[in-house]
């Protein structure tokens, strides 16, 4: 008999704090990750694995500490990769480098093959999260975007990565994330999306991309840009006769600091409660 079924067995290594360690490869680039696999099934049958992506400070440990205890209690799987600066200098973007391939590899190793995950990203991690979701909407249950510096808008009138238009100078036959995202835009706009941003995340610091065009289209601060993105998402969804499922939560007394957003704004618990 030739017919058979492939069997997925997570590839795991034991680590500290109950974490198991995974290592993904994408075109030779390494992406280590911590994985929490529940000892028992989730409390609710629909509990999705949570994948949390750090920002440009690359503080994956902060995300782990924020999510792991409650995830363990709830019986949810948690995957927290760490994009090393030397290997992934611009992990927020999908193009010349392919962090999406490394994430998919991690999903498979973690035993998430075929399952949707709740995908959370903070700052630069939120940039990667929504670009990943535009390419693979079938892998995402709820998309949590916390304080990205800027967004890829669901607008074909703007050239990638600010929008989904393909630039006139793009070399033929290179990976075209804009075209591929356009192909799946309907599915992306049908996703459940939760936006999070600190009420005091209004500083225009060096980590915030600042160009005149971006300021005009998306706003001058992360707070303003979150509102603009929510509007753009809703507008694009309704233009396709999709009822958007997007909500924006402003976290009081929080700036652009994940730990503060978690401790003061309760971000971790809110995300685990699924927004």
């Amino acid at each position: 008999m030739v017919m058979f079924a492939q069997i997925d067995v997570p590839v795991l290594g034991e680590g500290e704090h109950g974490a198991r360690r995974l290592l993904a490869l994408a075109a030779g680039r390494r992406l280590p990750s911590r994985l929490l696999l529940p000892a028992r099934a989730g409390l609710t049958p629909e509990a999705q694995p949570l994948v949390a992506l750090h920002g440009i400070s690359r503080n994956a440990r902060a995300l782990w500490l924020a999510f792991a205890p409650q995830a363990a209690v709830e019986g949810r799987s948690l995957l927290v990769p760490r994009f090393a600066k030397g290997v992934w200098p611009r992990f927020q973007q999908i193009g010349a480098a392919r962090p999406d391939l490394a994430l998919l590899d991690l999903f498979q190793q973690a035993g998430f093959r075929g399952r949707r995950v709740d995908l959370f990203g903070f700052s630069g991690g939120a940039q990667l999260a929504h670009r990943f979701a535009m390419l693979y909407p079938h892998r995402v249950a709820t998309l949590h975007l916390a304080a990205p510096g800027w967004y890829t808008l669901p607008d074909e009138g703007m050239v990638w990565p600010q929008g989904l238009g393909t630039g006139p100078t793009r070399r033929l036959r290179l990976f075209d994330a804009a075209a591929l995202s356009r192909l799946q835009l309907r599915q992306y706009l049908s996703l459940r999306v939760r936006l999070w941003v600190g009420a005091q995340d209004t500083t225009r610091d060096d980590s915030l991309r600042q160009t005149a065009a971006l300021d005009v289209r998306q706003g001058r601060t992360r707070l303003e840009r979150a509102f603009r993105y929510a509007e753009a998402f809703e507008r694009a969804a309704r233009s396709m006769a999709i009822v958007p499922d997007i909500a924006l939560t402003v976290l009081p007394d929080c700036g652009h600091d994940f730990t503060q957003c978690d401790r003061v704004g309760g971000l971790g618990a809110r995300v685990l409660r699924n927004g």
Partner: peptide, 27 residues
């Protein structure tokens, strides 16, 4: 073999594309 391209083709196959045919080119 690229998962993003393959997913895009599948979306196109399922008739989920509303825009005019987009190039699905990859190296």
């Amino acid at each position: 073999m690229d998962p993003a391209v393959a997913s895009g083709l599948l979306a196109k196959a399922q008739g989920l594309v509303t825009a005019p045919e987009a190039a699905v080119a990859a190296a």
